[in-house]
Design a binder for these strands. Structure first.
Length: 316
DNA sequence: AAGACGAAAGTGGTTGA
DNA sequence: TCAACAACTTTCGTCTT
């Protein structure tokens, strides 16, 4: 729902159809509070100078001024202090580069000491600092857009509040939030992909994920195979038309109830195989199976099924 | 020779008693 | 807790392009 309205606005603002120069995807995420537009598939930031078109509120007191001010660095949840703090520097010089007096220097030293103590040395913050570093690592490995990263970070913070982290590994819980967030934001990664990039095995990851959604009362609908198309399509260098064709096939399959209980990656792979043949961009079953991380047999079974049930005629 | 096909046996996860 | 079960994987021999 939100995704649709975002991309509509984007297309409305620009002349012609916009596609990501990095991966060719045409889904974008627009974030006015961060003044950014990024690719919904690979997370490439396409425009970081968009205007805030919100009303120019006037402020009548200092509280309102703080709330309504639209300058300053953007807030982010992926840094353990949300990126808002000012660090007291290490050089004992003032802004003009002049040496500080002895008493000022002593004061700066004390401030620094307390800043470090309060910032990183409380156990929650230490945990968060570690977790956010891991989140950075994992999401860059998986090529995950920043909006998903923010969602993960938010979930992790909630998990800490609900005391779900103690006694469990930070890596496992972060990986679980990444998996969950990628599904929520419709750029799913498979359990295996996430597990491969963390030091957690698939089983443990699955357990943490289930715990997370149960305890935080999050309901995540089953993965829609269509959500995989842009990523697999980009990896296989398929045209937009071909990806669109694959999406149509999956829509029809869904209407006919052929998708229930089937591995969504396998379905996406099969649809891509069929669409590739129809659009003259044939890829072998093995190539597709590899990118979708299923076996050729699965691609084959699904595609045979689709062809039969949807009465698709393929001219080879 | 590469790709596609399909049978058969094996695997991990879910369901229901 | 266990067995039945469906979906998927692995493996392999055969057919097609």
């Amino acid at each position: 729902m939100a995704k649709g309205s975002e991309s509509e606005r984007l297309e409305g603002n620009s002349a012609g159809k916009k596609v990501c120069p990095e991966c060719g995807s045409d889904s974008f995420i627009q974030d006015e509070t961060r003044a950014e537009v990024c690719c919904g598939n690979c997370g490439l930031i396409l425009d970081d100078k968009i205007m805030d078109f919100g009303p120019e509120w006037r402020a009548f007191n200092s509280e309102e001024r703080n709330r309504r001010s639209r300058v300053g660095s953007p807030m982010t949840l992926t840094v353990h202090d949300k990126g808002l703090s000012t660090m007291i520097g290490f050089e004992d010089r003032d802004i003009f580069g002049k040496k500080l007096s002895a008493s000022k220097r002593a004061q700066a030293y004390r401030l620094r000491k307390w800043q470090i103590r309060t910032r990183v040395h409380s156990s929650v913050d230490r945990n968060l600092a570690h977790a956010m570093a891991e989140l950075d690592r994992i999401s860059s490995q998986l090529g995950i857009p920043r909006s998903v990263k923010e969602t993960s970070a938010l979930m992790y913070r909630k998990a800490i509040d609900r005391r779900l982290i103690r006694g469990r590994s930070i890596e496992a819980m972060i990986a679980a939030t990444v998996y969950a967030a990628s599904r929520i934001r419709h750029v799913p990664r498979t359990l295996d992909e996430v597990a491969d990039q963390s030091r957690v095995n698939r089983k443990e990851l699955g357990r943490c994920y289930r715990l997370l959604i149960r305890e935080l009362n999050i309901s995540i609908p089953p993965v829609n195979p269509i959500d995989y198309l842009s990523r697999f399509g980009a990896e296989l260098k398929l045209s937009g038309a071909c990806q669109k064709r694959a999406a149509e096939i999956l829509e029809k399959a869904k209407e006919k109830g052929l998708t229930a209980g089937k591995d969504p990656t396998g379905l996406a792979a099969a649809a891509i195989y069929i669409a590739g043949i129809q659009e003259g961009e044939r890829r072998t079953q093995r190539e597709i199976a590899e990118t979708a991380r299923v076996t050729e047999v699965t691609v084959r079974n699904r595609y045979k099924e689709l062809v039969r049930q949807l009465e698709i005629h393929i001219v080879v």
